[in-house]
Simulated assay, not measured.
Amino acid sequence: MNPSVEKSVNAMLDGVPKGVLHPASGEQKFSLQRYAPSSEAGSFVQHYWIVRWDLRGQEPYRQTVIAHPNVNLVFEKNGTRIYGVGRSTTVRLVQDHGWVIGIKFKPGGFYPLFGAPVSRLTGRSIPLEDVFGVDSAPLEEKILQAPDDQEMVSRVETFLTPHLPSPDPNAALAHELVTAIRDDRNVIKVEDAVSLSGMNKRTLQRLFDRYVGISPKSVIQRYRLQEAAVRIDRGDVTDWLELSSELGYYDHSHFIRDFRSVVGMSPEEYRQKK
């Protein structure tokens, strides 16, 4: 492993990411580790993630995640594919035993490699070959047979680095805007994102369609509902009206409708299923 990659791999990112529903249950079924990219890949890659599980003799487990606005390239035995942004939630069936490694691209970070609107991938997946022009089978075997996480990440970066194009300023802008939406609770509707960006509404929507894959409205909604799920899972919620207000919902019923439309149940039903 070259020194720059080794340094980045050792900068492991701790904690369960937002959007993993009922994480306490999932932590009993699988392990998730995240690793920062090298500086060269960092313009495009948010992080690498590795999931390992051993459920031999146990029932399969279904993990649901509120989909993030990121494209993922997942190396999995006999199933390596590029996954576009999910339309609401994504579900992973964990069974038997195994491991996978994924590249989570930054919002906007996959477009320079794809060269077409990322919205074309939304809600679907495509073979690795369609973008990178290489046979995935031997690459998949080489990466997944690495002796440890560090070497697995190193092999992924060795594959990815020669394919990286020049940085795209619009990709960087898309990432900055998505990050700002995530971090600023005052952004609760598209008009707020328009003000934040300094663009007109149509230009912002075109940017997100091409570089992110979903609309600004959808990005706002997902981040607010991810935060709601985290608060519920932590047991921090005592008043639904107060929570909806803190998340920027002026109408409590609107919050409940959004939560149900994405998660598939009401906030109270979600809490009771813990």
Rank of each mutant, 00 (worst) to 15 (best):
V5M: 10
V5T: 15
S8E: 00
A11N: 15
D14P: 10
G15C: 12
P17L: 12
S25G: 00
S25Q: 11
S25E: 08
E27V: 09
L32M: 13
Q46W: 08
Q46I: 00
Q46E: 14
Y48I: 03
I50F: 12
I50L: 14
W53F: 12
G57D: 10
Q58E: 12
Q58S: 14
E59H: 01
P60R: 11
Y61M: 03
Q63C: 10
T64P: 00
T64S: 13
N70T: 06
V74A: 09
E76V: 06
N78K: 14
Y83W: 12
G84Y: 04
G84C: 03
D96T: 09
W99R: 15
W99V: 05
G102M: 08
I103G: 03
P112R: 04
L121Q: 03
R124D: 06
P127R: 13
D130Y: 07
D135H: 02
M152R: 11
M152C: 10
V153R: 13
R155V: 02
V156H: 04
V156D: 01
E157L: 09
T158R: 11
F159H: 06
P167Q: 05
N170H: 11
H175M: 01
T179F: 02
A180C: 00
D183V: 00
I188W: 12
I188A: 15
K189I: 11
K189G: 07
V190L: 14
S195H: 06
T203R: 15
Q205E: 14
Q205S: 11
V212E: 07
I214H: 03
P216Q: 02
K217F: 11
R222Q: 08
Y223P: 01
R224I: 05
A229N: 01
A229D: 08
V230Y: 10
F255H: 09
V262Q: 03
V262F: 06
V263Q: 02
V263T: 07
G264P: 08
E268R: 01
Y270I: 00
Q272G: 09
K274Y: 04
